[in-house]
Amino acid sequence: MKVRAPEAPKSFPAFVLLAFAVLWMALVILLPLVNVLAEAFKQGVAPYLSSIVQPDALSAIRLTLLVAAIAVPLNAVFGIAAAWCFTRFDFPLKGLLLSILDLPFTISPVISGIVWVLLFGAHGWFGAFLQANDIKIIYALPGLVIATILVTLPFVARELIPLMQDQGTDEEIAAVTLGASGWDVFFRVTLPNIKWALTYGVLLCTARAMGEFGAVSVVSGHIRGLTNTLPLHIEVLYNEYDSVGAFAAATLLAGLALVTLVLKSLLEWRFADELAAHRRH
């Protein structure tokens, strides 16, 4: 099959389409990002810096990193296990399990938050038990972590499954006939073949884990200095009309998003063959 190569626009309609696309992307997508910087530095550099080093802001940064540091590795291990079991074996109800895996992508982040309140909140299924034993999940770190895990659960698995499906099992079976043990097969044959897709999935998972707002907002309780992640910190400041503070915090997350985009483009450009062909987010 022959595929058409892109060429410089020549006709009038081509220029119209190009102009529309560029303008639309600039106004709808790029402008909000530029606006973040403009608002953050509205009153100069000093207020910007001082609002970033506020104790509340620093503790929000620490909490955000901590939550991601717990949630992402768990989802990565799960993603590898799920991809292995979905692409290497056939078993009943596989389709059903796959749709369950996709659920966190389709349900609202708010729902991903309230389910935990319904389980562990004061009036939740285990609320009384938790209270009696003085265990705090909701409005505490564990709640933030499980809500983040739920929201970011499919990222790694969804990146690995199509790739491992594509790659097939030939190399792994060859390794078995050559006498490799299960872990040898995984670490010497499978992992090297999926490492860039895994990196890619972990990257997207991390970005989302750090930026998640809806789900953690439900379980956080917005306790300043204790359960506010960076996105929640932005909300609190914005609602208190501390625009510079809110946007200063927002620049950190926007920076994270840009770094993610750069790394993502880099991975896509450098390792196109080793990433899955079709992506969903």
């Binding site: 030939d170 190399e171 079976i173 060859a174 390794a175 078995v176 006939t177 006498g179 490799a180 043990s181 010497r188 044959v189 090297p192 073949n193």
Partner: peptide, 19 residues
């Protein structure tokens, strides 16, 4: 098991380890 038979198998696709 396949692992213990010590059989040299040459696959149709060769199944070389690409990395």
């Amino acid at each position: 098991s396949a692992r213990d038979r010590r059989i040299g198998m040459v696959f149709q696709s060769y199944a070389l380890f690409r990395h």
